[in-house]
Every structure is written in structure tokens, then in C-alpha cells.
Design a protein around this nucleic acid. Structure first.
Lengths: 237, 237
DNA sequence: CGGCCGCTTGACTATTATCAAAGATGGTGG
DNA sequence: CCACCATCTTTGATAATAGTCAAGCGGCCG
């Protein structure tokens, strides 16, 4: 449930924190842990469930993973998405959430035992892992902020701008994003319904903020306005 | 921003996890870190702000601390409360939230340098600290669930039941709780307004779920119903 | 005793959820 | 290669929950 990309969701945090993936990813490579089996997982497959013993740490290569919880009555909440380059599964021994693919996904699977051995050898390695968890906590805090205080417009803008900034950080254009997940995943992530998400996309399009030819490709037409919305500055304030 | 009590907010987690405070608090004592200065802080004082360099780790002795974030336009979100026995301030070097007292509070202040020295001496110590952060992450996930999927009734029930379970875990009666914070703090924690919180208390009282003689003392009259509500099982499901 | 602060209550509004149906899209098999 | 079906998305009409604005109550402290 540690998603390295997560911190970029919070604009302020994205600026303040050093690139966390920068720190730990090369360390994984140096340890030779990269050579662990690469798994190819179909869409909608479960990697683990809440309460499971942690067995592997995964590095997403391609595709996308969704981290979620489910209430007793079936209501589902998406806590985070993991994209290529992200590390998921760090943290305590018990998984705090479910993880399932939302696309055909390729993952490197590092057994926890191997990971723990690496930590025992090199304390700095464990320290970096802890920083990832702390960043995930900061991201979760930001998620609470988004969900409890932002309007539907602001929530979707916040989601899109997080993806935009991620692109930027990866050397891609921040002017457009690809949505690997379905509307329902976005809705469950933002604490809205699919209908509201769909309507908000339409509203953005009609207002000239975005353009969409396919429903999973968004081109930004007014980044400044979207960023203001995402920060909770816009609308009626 | 690591609040040891936080995990108890999530019922399932509260059962699954060992008492985290059990693990680290005696270790702090054993290291002699307890001898650090005890501070007496008035109500409404700020301990640190988001983005601050982490300078101390605090153990709450009496009173209560509120962890929050504030949006650019002034909207505030309460992320957690820390009560006597809780440790706050663990995590990364940069504070992910503000911390301020909501009561006259006594705190033990352990300088970060002393804490780091202790970790360097004893890796197990650092491992326990990491577990605290992971538990805080799990609690934050639960907070997201509460805020994004529960009704006002369910949210307040969830808040009250977390306090009830905390009492229980501390050997006190789970049948009543004391609310050290103001209605506004509860509202900002639950993503509601003070009016809605007030009305929900009234609704609970009228429905025979609780009794209240003062507005900061709640006696539970139907714990089963409240717990069902808190778990998101109740209402119209 | 008076004023301030926090809590409660009321009337009304607004945003989003819900229910329902139609329109796309993509994949499969004929 | 096209047609069909399942799934996902969009759109519309209506309802419900919580927010906003406003006023009154009550306790605590100076």
C-alpha cells in the first residue's frame, strides 16, 4: 500500500519532497532484487487483500494497480492508484488495503524475505523504505483533504492535475493525460458516483477546460484554471 | 503526525494489530528519553506547522492535540486527535500537518536528535517507529473510508465508537466518553459542519442512542446500534 | 451582572446521489 | 468483414442529504 507516486498528488508536497522513487529504486537495482520474477497479470486480478500477510513488494512496470478498501455492505473506496515505476506493498506485515489491477499489468515481484535481508544488510535501505511509508501517509492526508473539503469540480481537477504533474515529473507533457482506469474507479477514488464524474468531465469540456476525443484521453486547454481548482482556490471563494 | 491511538479508529485494525503503544512506550522509558522536559501547553497553542522541520517527538500526558491541514482559502481539515499516551511527531523529517492543542496539555518533548541516537543504537527501536507510521497510514485510509462513504449519522457514530473502544482499551468503561474538543473540531474531523454535527447529536439523543447532560459528555444507551452504524452496516442497507 | 463564546435550532438552498434510459465502444463469433 | 452483445459512459429527471444563513439559548468568566 505504499505508493511512491502518491505524494505527487499533493501539490505542495510534490514540490517540497525529494523524488522518493529516485532514492529507493536504484537501491533495489543495486541489490540485484530486480532480477526477481516479472509477473504478467491480467486486468481485474487481485494482488492481495486487506488483512493478508505481506508476501511481496511489487514494482509496477506497465499497466496500473488500484489500492482500495471495501465496507461490509459492499461500498468500495479507492485509496490510491499505482502506475509504472511505483513501488507498492511496503509497510507493516499486514496489508492495510486490497490491491487489484485495472489493466493488463507487468510487475516485478520481490519476496518480502529477500527485501528484509536487504534491509538487515543495509540500514539505509530500511530508512528509505520508511520514508516511502511516511510519504504515503502524507498523500493519504491529502486525500482526506480532497474528499472532505473539495467540490466535485475541484476533486476531479485535483485528480487530473496529479496525473499531469506525474507526466511532467517523468519527462512527458503535462498538457494531456491517459486514464488507465474506468469511471467507477475514479468515482470511488474521489468519493463521488460515476454519474457525477461523467457530468463533471462534460462540464469541463463545455467550459473549455479540457478536450476529450476518447473517454480515456484528456487534453488540458486551461491548465492554470484547472490547477487553481485543484488547489481549492477556485469556484466561489 | 503519528498517532498511536489512531489505529483504534478502524475497528478491524484495532482487533488485528497488537497494541503499538505497548511496544514503543517502554522502549522510550528504557532509553531514559522520558526524562526529557515536560512541557505544559495552553489550549489552542501550535506545536508545529505543516512543512516544519521535525524538531521533537511528543508523548501526550494530559489534554488533547489536534492534527490538521489548512487549504489556501482557509478551509481546515482535522486529520486526527492525539490523547494521553499517544506519541505524535514520528515520521519523515518534514511535518505533513499542523499540530495544535485543543485543551490545556502536558507533553513530554523528546528532541529528534536524541530519538535518532536511540534508533542508531537499537535498530529494533527504529523498526517499532516504522510500524507506528504504517499504523497511522492504515488509520488515515480508514479516515478516507469514513469521510467518503459514510453518512453524517454513520460518521458521528464512527467517531464516538472509536473513543468508546479507546476507553475500553485503557481499562475504562466503553459506555461513555468525554469529548475534549469543540464541535468545530469534530466537524472538521468528520468533514461536516458544526450545525450538522449538532443536529446529529440531537438526532442520536432523540432516538435514544445516547444521553448528554453536558455537551462534552456522551453516555451510550444503545452501543450495538451505534457500532453497526459506525461500521457502515446500518441505515438503509 | 453583562458580554462573549460556543452550542442548538430553524428555514431555505444547493450539490450530489439515485433511478432510469439511451448512446458509445470494444470484443467475439458467425 | 460485419453484426451483435456486453460493458461502459453519458444524459436526464427527481429526491435526499448536508450546507448556508440567521437567530436564539446557555454557560462561563471577567
Amino acid at each position: 500500500m505504499i505508493n511512491i507516486a502518491a505524494h505527487s498528488f499533493h501539490d505542495a508536497t510534490a514540490i517540497k519532497l525529494p523524488q522518493p522513487a529516485m532514492a529507493i529504486a536504484p537501491m533495489l537495482a543495486a541489490k540485484g532484487l530486480h532480477s526477481s520474477a516479472i509477473r504478467k497479470v491480467a486486468c481485474n486480478e487481485t494482488l492481495w487483500c486487506e488483512g493478508d500477510e505481506r508476501s511481496h513488494i511489487f514494482v509496477v512496470r506497465t499497466g496500473a494497480v488500484c489500492l482500495s478498501r471495501t465496507l461490509p455492505n459492499g461500498r468500495r473506496i479507492v485509496l490510491d492508484f499505482a502506475y509504472p515505476g511505483d513501488i507498492i506493498g511496503l509497510g507493516a506485515d499486514t496489508q492495510p488495503c486490497d490491491a487489484h489491477t485495472v489493466q493488463l499489468t507487468r510487475l516485478e515481484a520481490i519476496p518480502v524475505a529477500a527485501f528484509k535481508r536487504a534491509v538487515a544488510e543495509d540500514p539505509e535501505f530500511g530508512r528509505q523504505a520508511s520514508i516511502q511509508v511516511a510519504n504515503a501517509l502524507s498523500a493519504a492526508y491529502q486525500h482526506v483533504v480532497v474528499i472532505s473539503k473539495l467540490s466535485a469540480n475541484e476533486r476531479l481537477a485535483s485528480f487530473l492535475m496529479a496525473l499531469s504533474r506525474r507526466n511532467e515529473a517523468h519527462g512527458l507533457s503535462p498538457m494531456s493525460v491517459l486514464l488507465p482506469m474506468k469511471r467507477l474507479d475514479i468515482a470511488d477514488f474521489l468519493g463521488l458516483t460515476i454519474e457525477t464524474v461523467s457530468r463533471t468531465f462534460t462540464r469541463f469540456r463545455d467550459a473549455g477546460l479540457i478536450a476529450m476525443d476518447q473517454h480515456n484521453v484528456v487534453v488540458f486547454r486551461d491548465l492554470a484554471k484547472l490547477r487553481a481548482l485543484a488547489a481549492g482556490e477556485g469556484e466561489h471563494d
